[in-house]
Simulated scan of single mutants.
Amino acid sequence: MSKVYLLAGPPGAGKSTYAQKQSAETGGVVIDYDQYLAVAPDADTAERWRLEAEGKAHELGKNVYIVRTLAKADERAAAAERIKADETIVLLTSSEVSKARVSERDGDDSKHQAIDAWWQDYTGNEGETTITFDGEEDPATESNEPEDGVRDDQEEPAPATDPGQNNEEHPTEPPGQAQEEQDTELQAIIDAAREEERAKVAEEFALERFNTHLSAAATARKLNTGALDLLQSSLSPHAFINKDHSVNTEKLTAFLDTFTRHAPRDSHAGHRGTTAVSGKALGKALADEYLNRKGR
């Protein structure tokens, strides 16, 4: 059964390394902000992609390892609740070891302050699994690791089988295949997020172009501000936007010609013996009449 793991710890604790190792062994997936930042156009987009991927973690049908920092207990608890994590693992690598790692990796000490701040803010949660890679114990929370080295959620090693027995051999994945599958799935998530972002941007530009065309056409027909407001409040822009997000100027022009011929110039009170019609209702009625004639 697949699980979602929340991995937390200070910068340089080895979270990404641990997540990559576990995912390679189980055929899982890693969701790490740094992976998205490497391909996203900006930090805000990378953060949005990460949040979207975390929200879909349980849909992947594989073990998912979500990498975060999250020093405070309440922040980890809130994140675990949001992503419905099956287990929270905190890597309690000492500040000295973490600083040495980031200095070697980044070539500077720019993250040393963040490491100190993490340890100042750190508080433990009951039920979390803690792991240290430098031989130091957690000063606040007792580790959930049993003395025999087997975790609570792991099964005891299977007894050795007799070489003479005819045991069925189970095929194993070739080296690197699990990592390749993980990279493919991660790329699919990124591609989907990019496509969604492009669609949103295209729609926004299409609406801007529609409003520009509408304002220019209304000005050319000498419609007053009230008439333009009426059109903008009653028309559905998507009725005049093509599938490629271009504006159907021919359809818009034909509609405005109809609107200009029928719309009263001074008021919408109606003729003698008729019921007064509000401006918005009239605009909607004219739009519906036009679109119905065109076969909507």
Rank of each mutant, 00 (worst) to 15 (best):
Thr219Asn: 13
Leu6Gly: 02
Val39Asp: 00
Leu223Asp: 03
Ala220Asp: 12
Lys72Cys: 08
Asp86Gly: 15
Glu289Ile: 00
Val67Ser: 05
Asp86Met: 07
Gln113Pro: 00
Gly14Arg: 00
Glu196Cys: 01
Gly14Pro: 00
Gln165Ala: 15
Glu54Pro: 06
Arg265Gln: 13
Arg76Ala: 05
His112Trp: 13
Gly283Trp: 04
Gly283Cys: 06
Glu173Lys: 15
Val30Pro: 01
Asn144Phe: 01
Ala71Gly: 05
His213Thr: 01
Glu196Gln: 15
Val247Phe: 06
Ser103His: 08
Lys15Phe: 03
Pro41Met: 08
Thr93Glu: 07
Leu256Gly: 08
Lys251Thr: 02
Ala8Val: 05
Thr260Gln: 15
Gly273Asp: 09
Gly14Cys: 07
Glu181Trp: 09
Glu208Thr: 12
Gln120Thr: 12
Asp244Phe: 10
Ala53Phe: 02
Ala140Lys: 13
Gln165Arg: 10
Ala199Phe: 02
Lys243Glu: 08
Val90Lys: 01
Asp108Glu: 08
Ala220Asn: 15
Thr275Glu: 11
Lys15Leu: 03
Ala71Val: 03
Ala85Asn: 06
Ala287Val: 00
Arg198Ser: 12
Asn224Gln: 12
Glu52Cys: 07
Thr253Asn: 15
Glu52Val: 05
Lys62Ile: 08
Asp134Ser: 06
Ile189Ala: 12
Pro157Ala: 08
